[in-house]
Write a protein that binds this DNA or RNA. Structure first.
Lengths: 244, 244
DNA sequence: CGAATAGTGTCTCTCAGACAATATTGC
DNA sequence: GCAATATTGTCTGAGAGACACTATTCG
């Protein structure tokens, strides 16, 4: 190929009209189950735009930073949730031209399943951070398009619990069948039969591995429950289907 | 709030270090089933980078253009596939810092299910466009990270066919049960029992609606098949599960 | 002992997979 | 008739939901 043509073609790639400038942010939908209630981590914005409004934690992706690395960095910095105790997956891309009043921004939200952790401490860019029950979130008051992002995250979480063993990501390393059942009940918002749930979860290969010890009974008594760890299955066969 | 503080906070939002410049592209994983083979639409790039290499069709998102609108525009311009005959859904975001040698680019790929259409005509930015059987794609030779994007699209398609009625998006408006079965067989890559398949698809509410007419038998004879249209179900109950 | 929670067993119904049998076409 | 395709029916086994019953703790 002649050098001139190659160079011309290459420069053609740099036509500034072809590369409208965008900013890229990551936002996190961090979900947990606290006291039987599905909750999401929200921050209060301390800068414009939407100063003082509740929002999902997040921020701008840096020049040479991988998207997921940016999400994990923000997660640890801004909320104190450590990556190794949580499940992190990409939720998609939100890029409506008017979603940020400053400029054109595409947000790549990440969905995080975290065990019940101590209240996080506010970090950079947020003056306040807390777990808020998902059902108590006032969607109209969230910054940007975060109501839609949150809704997508919750729906993804509900679907994921059917076909993947990720419900265990909401629990501590050692868990009981009842712990797991409370996760399903909180995320799906429906009561489940403890007996059928026990049979299904312990009967699905690779879901739960018995530790060989029992948990301490709660106050008021009750038989101690066997402790389990996560198995190595990536998919559940058979699946845990939502009642329809 | 005092004007000065508000303005300072607002300007703070414009700190150039906080907004590293990105370009955003959309790429399309356009799938169809031709002669019983799952195929993807590929173009030959006529500009740098990766000039002469095969790639997914796509391009830069314009300043005030919605992501999905950009994808649909490119789809129609570059490949001749019309939006109203296809299913379009977002596939995620790919943003590795080194995925484009020119600059930092985040790509938002869209997955498209199209019926078997006449060979498309090359459009802007491509000197060649064709349907390529997915199994014949040489992954190493695709531009950018399009091998990973294609793999994600194919896997998403396989999963979608289980729980959604979208297999019909690969067929014409009027279809037979055998048409639909050939879609499942091509996408999943496994043969299915025609008798059980017939019972399941016609028995799942909202999947197929009988038209009341029969199709013409193919060459070599055979009983004419009843014609159906898509039903209005959004999810399949019960699902069409892949053999495992 | 009674209340509470954990775990097992049993029954019924749906559905998936295997495959026999029948129906309707072209040749 | 014969090959090819469509459609219905029948059987078996897995699994889901309902729920009786047993097991083990606290008070």
């Amino acid at each position: 190929m002649p050098q001139g043509e190659s160079e011309r073609e290459f420069l053609k790639g740099y036509d500034p009209r072809a590369f409208p400038p965008f900013a890229v942010t990551v936002d996190m939908v961090v979900l947990t189950v606290r006291e039987g209630v599905l909750s999401v981590l929200l921050v209060e914005r301390e800068t414009h735009p939407f100063r003082g409004r509740l929002a999902l934690p997040g921020g701008f992706v840096q020049k040479d930073e991988d998207l997921e690395a940016a999400a994990v960095r923000r997660l640890e910095q801004e909320t104190g949730v450590r990556r190794d105790v949580a499940h992190v997956e990409q939720l998609g891309a939100f890029g409506d031209p008017r979603r940020d009043p400053r400029m054109r921004v595409v947000s790549v939200p990440y969905l995080v399943f975290a065990p019940d952790l101590p209240a996080p401490t506010p970090g950079t860019g947020a003056s306040w951070v807390a777990w808020v029950p998902v059902r108590a979130v006032e969607s109209d008051r969230l910054a940007f398009d975060h109501a839609a992002v949150l809704a997508a995250g919750v729906e993804r979480a509900r679907a994921k619990l059917e076909y993947s063993p990720l419900a265990t990501a909401f629990c501590d390393e050692e868990l009981t069948v009842a712990d797991l059942r409370r996760v399903y009940e909180a995320v799906w918002g429906v009561p489940l039969d403890p007996r059928n749930f026990h049979r299904k979860t312990t009967g699905t290969p690779g879901f739960l591995v018995p530790v060989g010890r029992d948990s301490q009974p709660g106050p008021g008594g009750g038989r101690p429950a066997a402790l389990y760890r996560r198995g190595d299955a990536q998919q559940l066969h058979p699946a845990m289907l939502r009642p329809h």
